[in-house]
């Protein structure tokens, strides 16, 4: 599935991924391909994007997540740091 992480000042990440984990407003959630349409708030915390063995971690300061079809969009207020 396609994942994009965007902040008000630009796109931070865009690409294919096998799974996404995020700090949802109603508890941490994980998204795998084929997830139902989904909209959630995000709290401060790490968003983890996995593709095969690769894992990328984005420390966000809050925002929203939207899943629609095969696309995951993370709207982050800001990204504090990223790590491979």
């Amino acid at each position: 599935m396609e994942v994009a992480i965007v902040t008000p000042t630009g796109e931070v990440f865009s690409g294919e991924a096998d799974s996404v984990v995020g700090p949802g407003g109603a508890g941490e959630f994980g998204i795998l391909p084929g997830h139902t349409a989904f909209l959630s708030t995000l709290l401060e915390g790490p968003v983890v994007v996995r593709q095969g063995r690769d894992e990328q971690r984005f420390q966000i300061t809050g925002g929203f997540a939207e899943v629609h079809g095969d696309r995951v969009v993370i709207l982050a207020d800001g990204v504090a740091e990223t790590a491979q």
């Binding site: 949802g24 959630f29 909209l39 959630s40 708030t41 207020d77």
Partner: peptide
């Protein structure tokens, strides 16, 4: 197809979170 969204933690709470950000983004 939009009615099928799963909202977390609920529409009203989402809207309350979203609207101030939307306004701030317009300003930005």
């Amino acid at each position: 197809g939009e009615a099928s969204y799963l909202f977390e933690p609920g529409e009203a709470a989402l809207l309350a979170d979203l609207l101030p950000r939307y306004v701030a983004n317009r300003v930005l």
